[in-house]
């Protein structure tokens, strides 16, 4: 089913993307609707009794022993941050 402009705004917010500020707002809607129309082909498929699979392989999670393997990497990691101070990553004020 086609995606409304409202829905696009909603999912864009969920995904933290701006769409209203770009001039191609319409083309996003048109593109998404073409993709959704293509994807809609699967909705008609009879999958009664079929178990959904998340992976092709049937294996179980391997467990890790509880031993510290990672030492302090703060300085090298914080060096990647766009803004850091006093050992912290900085973001515009977080309001509760």
């Amino acid at each position: 089913m086609p995606i409304s402009q409202e829905t696009i705004k909603y999912i864009a917010h969920l995904a933290r993307l701006n769409i209203e500020n770009t001039r191609d707002g319409d083309s996003i809607q048109a593109d998404l609707n073409r993709i959704v129309a293509m994807v809609d082909q699967i909705t008609a498929t009879n999958t009664k009794g079929v178990d959904p699979i998340a992976h092709s392989l049937e294996a179980a999670e391997r467990l890790r022993t509880d031993v510290v393997t990672e030492t302090d990497q703060r300085d090298s990691l914080l060096a990647l941050a766009p803004k850091a101070e006093a050992g912290l990553f900085l973001v515009p004020i977080v309001l509760e």
Binding site: V39, I42, T43, T45, V50, D51, I53, A54, S56
Partner: peptide, 13 residues
Amino acid sequence: YYIQAQKVRKLIT
């Protein structure tokens, strides 16, 4: 969509 796709994935497999 998502669950249905996982089922079709099984059919393809």
